[in-house]
Design a protein around this nucleic acid. Structure first.
Length: 600
RNA sequence: GGGGGCGUGGUGCAGCUGGUUAGCACACCGGCCUGUCAAGCCGGAGGCCGCGGGUUCAAGUCCCGUCGCUCCCGCCA
């Protein structure tokens, strides 16, 4: 076996990708990985790669017989050092695809610091490789230039974020990971306490209460780039541990906070994408979002807004409409311009899709010169057809898609139909970045069991003018909560908080949390609020989601160095894994595994 | 918890209504080659078709179960 060279007295002078025509004639010392080797029998080319990119090293037997001989043994991903002079590539040999394509390094010396086994997958091509393999060999996957670029971007997002908030007088303050479980929200990750038998810490879902306490503590402006944990099922845009840009300010109102956040986002886009964002960002109320888009995170890169046509179809002969309207349901419609070109098969697919979601049906109607062409046309009088066309602003060639049912079901389904249509018929400008603030969220909502819960969280302040509603009709009460949506993804959300202890107690009581329970779970907050808490509010952003969008990635896993799989496992470290019985004993823990069906 | 997709040499894929020797590209190994850059040419090695069961004369192919990865619903700001 060939000897490896010691790494000694080898001072790197440049990153590979930094070599330019300015360096021609200069001696450079480079280190990195063999990205690819091309052996022509005589001359050998090696694309030498480091974090920043690649440069071509040339091993010529006439120029340096010893290093040429040594280069013969190089293979992909060997770790080497090259000393040599930068030269201009011969006429016609430049590679315009490479940043360093006009130059090359004529190798005088080659040092081989380490070898590599044959690779489990190809690193350089943007071929799709099964994600399980990429994750298992994440150290190789991350060497791919596109991944390196994602982390360079992520670093710059963090750096700009720190600089921006520092510039506005925010303190970066750390909050504990070992904290206590609070009700509401997501499932907690729990950590058993060795010294307190039977006691558990919870990893924070967000530093919510502690940042409010920091405001009470007079810190005035706080921010943190902080890991948060939620033990819920994963999605392409949801990991069990994720990073928030979390901030909180005292003596602030919604408008001012929004302005500060927009300044930050605009700076990120300006510096990272060279894109100037129009400010202020557009906004709509929660009620408008639901009315027009069916969801509270509308993708505003395209139209296809929907409209309520309940009153227009009232009195129709169509049984489904009649029954729904009698049952206080709604009928909503969406206009797809030019949609009459859809074939019967395509329409059936749309209907089938809606039924897969659980919808009772989806009704289509083509606007033709001869009126509405639809399976339900015979149930609709001329008056009703006229009213619908009028309401929808439908033109000849348009397709109308209608759904009837309770608002809680029809709105999200129509919202989903809208995105499916936009995707299927290519209505999305993928280069666009459409921001929308969603304002005036309801303070409360009802869960499946009919219990009243906080829409945002229990510390969100009601709108001043809606406070009287707390007693009469809490569900109509709007809050001072706000979300920022980008291209249909919620990237941040926050609120003005309750700073009066009496209001906070009232909210808890509406939520059905008894005084004793409130005292036990949030006593420290109630205490803090009663010692001169300043008016305050804040917001938190999903850093991973933001970086994902900036990087144009389809999954969070592309911008997280060591992400979890959908089953919340790390394929690199094989976590979660078993622990010793002794460790469990110390923690006063006994595991009870689910029963498996008896085998044999 | 539920629904969809995928699983075939190291990687990416093909393999028809079940049929005899499982194919292609890249990677790998050996050889040739002094200007390539996804180098090229010649040759070679490499497969328990995820795993288990079933149907059948016969299963990569059909059925059931299971495991893994993934997308979505539920859940989650």
């Amino acid at each position: 076996m060939d000897e490896l060279d010691p790494f000694r007295d080898f001072q790197r002078t440049h990153y590979c990708a930094e070599i330019t025509e300015q360096d021609i004639g200069r001696e450079v010392h480079l280190v990195g990985w063999v990205h690819r080797r091309r052996d022509h029998g005589g001359v050998i080319f090696v694309d030498l790669r480091d974090r920043e990119g690649t440069v071509q090293a040339v091993f010529n037997p006439q120029h340096s017989p010893a290093s040429h001989r040594k280069a013969d043994a190089l293979r992909n991903e060997f770790v080497i050092g090259v000393k040599g002079k930068v030269s201009r590539r011969p006429e016609g040999m430049t590679n315009p695809k490479l940043k360093t394509g006009a130059v090359e390094v004529m190798a005088d010396e080659l040092a081989v610091f380490n070898r590599s086994r044959a690779l489990p997958f190809n690193l350089d091509e943007d071929l799709e490789v099964e994600e399980a393999i990429r994750l298992r060999y994440r150290f190789l996957d991350l060497r791919r230039p596109s991944m390196a670029a994602n982390f360079a971007l992520r670093h710059r997002v963090s750096k700009i974020t720190r600089d921006y908030f520092d510039g506005l007088g925010f303190y970066e303050i750390e909050t504990p990971f070992l904290t206590r479980s609070t009700p509401e929200g997501a499932r907690d990750y729990l950590v058993p306490s060795r010294v307190n038998p039977g006691g558990f810490y919870a990893l924070p879902q967000s530093p919510q209460l502690l940042k409010q306490i920091l405001m009470v503590a007079g810190m005035d402006r706080y921010f943190q780039i902080v890991r948060c944990f939620r033990d819920e099922d994963l999605r392409a845009d949801r990991q069990p541990e994720f990073t928030q840009v979390d901030l909180e300010m005292s003596f602030v109102e919604q408008g001012q906070l929004i302005e500060i956040v927009e300044g930050w986002i605009a700076r990120l886009f300006e510096e990272l994408l060279g894109k100037t964002l129009q400010r202020p960002f557009p906004s709509m109320t929660y009620a408008e979002a639901i009315e027009d888009y069916g969801v509270d995170n509308p993708d505003t890169r395209y139209g296809l807004k929907m409209k309520d046509i309940t009153d227009a179809v009232k009195g129709s002969e169509f049984q489904v409409f009649r029954q729904v309207i009698e049952g206080h349901g709604i009928v909503k419609a969406l206009r797809f311009p030019g949609g009459t070109r859809l074939s019967r098969r395509e329409l059936d697919n749309l209907v089938g899709m809606a039924k897969d979601w659980g919808a009772d049906g989806l009704i289509w109607a083509k606007c033709t010169g001869a009126g509405l062409q639809s399976p339900i046309a015979k149930f609709l009088s001329q008056d009703i057809v006229g009213a619908v066309i009028d309401r929808m602003g439908a033109l000849e060639g348009d397709l109308l898609l209608m759904m009837a049912g309770s608002p809680g079901r029809v709105n999200p389904w129509m919202g989903r139909l809208r995105t499916e249509l936009a995707e299927a018929y290519d209505l999305i400008d993928s280069s666009a970045h459409a921001f929308t603030w969603i304002l005036d969220f309801p303070l409360f909502e009802r869960d499946k069991e009919g219990h009243i819960t906080s829409m945002h969280h229990p510390f969100t302040a009601p709108r001043e003018e809606d406070i009287p509603l707390l007693d009469e009709n809490p569900e109509a009460c709007r809050s001072l909560a706000y979300d920022l949506v980008l291209n249909g993804t919620e990237i941040g959300g926050g609120s003005i908080r309750i700073h009066r202890v009496d209001t906070q107690k009232k909210i808890l009581s509406i939520l059905g949390i008894s005084e004793a329970e409130g005292e036990e779970k949030f006593g420290f907050l109630l205490d803090a609020l009663s010692y001169g808490a300043p008016p305050h509010g804040g917001i938190a952003f999903g850093l991973d989601r933001l970086v994902m969008i900036l990087a144009g990635a389809k999954s969070l896993r592309e911008v997280i160095a060591f992400p979890k799989t959908q089953k919340a496992a790390c394929l690199l470290t094989q976590s979660p894994g078993p622990v010793d019985a002794e460790q469990l004993r110390e923690l006063h823990i006994r595991t009870v595994l689910p029963k498996k069906p008896a085998s044999g």
